[in-house]
Simulated scan of single mutants.
Amino acid sequence: MAFVFDPIPQPSVAVAGSDDRLPVRRVFCVGRNYAAHAREMGKDPDRDPPFFFTKPADAVVDSGVAVAYPAETSNFHYEAELVVAIGKAGRDIPTQHALDHVWGYAVGNDLTRRDLQLAAREQGRPWDWGKAFDFSAVIGPVHPVAQVGHLGRGRISLSVNDVLKQDSDLANLIWSVPEIISILSQSMEMKPGDIIMTGTPEGVGPLVPGDHCVIEIEGLGKIETPITERVKGQA
C-alpha cells in the first residue's frame, strides 16, 4: 500500500526529564469545569452536567513555541488547564479504577477564539471554529505518575506579561480527574495517547501580539507561550 501523499508526522508531546515523546491520539476538553469560570461565562455550574469538546491532535504545540495571533478573531483568549495523558486502554471504567489509566500529567493552555466560540454557542452550533484551530493546544512536558503521583489539589495560575490573571486550585474542579475519565469511557474507549484538558478556572481573558503567557501548576512546573503578530495575509 502507498499513500497518495505523505501523511502528517505523528503529533506528540514532550516527556519531562526524557528525550522520549508521548504520541497524541485525541484531545478531549472539559467545558466549564470550575464553578467560578462557569459563572463568568454566564452559566450555572449547579445545573450543567459535564460536557466535552475536542481538538485535533495536530493542534498540540510545545511550551516555548511562539503562537501567531490566529485568523478570523479579535478576541483571542488564554485558559490555564491541568492536562491528563492516558496510558492504558479501557471502556466503562469505574471511577475508583480510573486513575490506573493515567500515564502522567502536564500543564496546558486551551487557546480560544472567544468571539467565534460565543457566536456558535448563541446559535446552538458546535464550538469547533472557536476551539479546534491550529496551535490551539499548548501542552508542556508530561510528568509520569511514577514521578509526581496523582494531583487532586495544588495551585494553578496564569500570568500575562508578569501580571497574574488566573489563580485557583485543582481542588476546585467540579468534576475530578477520575470522574472525567469514567464519564468519557462510557461513550468511547479510552486508549493510550488520549489527552484530556480538564477545564480552566475563572479569570480568562484576551491575548494580543507581544504578550508572554506563563502557566504554572504546583508539582508540574510551568509552560510559556509568546504570542506573535498574525500571519501576513490572514483575515
Score class of each variant (00 low, 15 high):
A2C: 12
A2Y: 14
A2I: 13
A2R: 15
A2T: 15
F3L: 14
F5G: 03
I8C: 07
V13K: 04
G17I: 01
S18L: 03
R21Y: 02
L22F: 14
V24L: 06
R26W: 02
V27L: 12
V30Y: 08
A36S: 14
H37G: 01
A38E: 07
E40H: 09
M41G: 08
F52R: 04
K55V: 07
P56V: 08
A57P: 08
V60A: 04
V61L: 03
G64S: 12
V65S: 13
A66F: 07
V67P: 06
A68E: 11
Y69S: 12
Y69E: 13
Y69D: 13
E72D: 14
T73W: 09
N75H: 11
Y78A: 10
E79R: 00
E79M: 06
E79K: 04
A80D: 03
A80M: 06
L82R: 00
L82A: 08
V83L: 02
V84D: 03
A85V: 06
A85C: 15
I86D: 01
G87S: 04
G87H: 01
A89R: 10
D92Y: 01
I93R: 02
Q96P: 00
A98W: 01
D100F: 07
V102R: 01
D110R: 00
R114C: 03
D115S: 10
L118A: 12
A119Q: 13
R121N: 12
R125K: 15
W127Y: 11
D128K: 05
W129A: 12
K131Q: 06
D134Q: 10
S136I: 07
P141T: 02
V142Q: 00
V145R: 01
V145Q: 02
V145C: 03
Q147A: 15
V148C: 13
G149M: 07
G152R: 04
G152S: 11
R153N: 12
R155E: 05
I156N: 05
S157H: 09
L158S: 04
V160A: 10
N161G: 11
D162H: 15
V163A: 15
V163C: 14
L170H: 00
A171R: 09
A171Q: 04
L173Q: 05
I174P: 00
I174N: 07
W175P: 08
S176Q: 14
V177A: 06
E179Q: 14
I180C: 05
I183H: 04
S185M: 09
Q186K: 13
S187D: 05
M188L: 13
M188T: 09
M190Q: 02
K191V: 12
P192W: 09
I196C: 10
M197Q: 11
T200L: 04
E202F: 11
G203E: 03
P206G: 06
L207M: 15
D211H: 12
C213A: 15
C213T: 11
I217Y: 03
G219T: 02
G219C: 08
G221R: 00
G221T: 02
G221K: 01
E224D: 14
T225I: 08
T225N: 11
P226M: 07
T228F: 08
T228I: 13
G233K: 14
G233R: 13
A235M: 14
A235F: 14
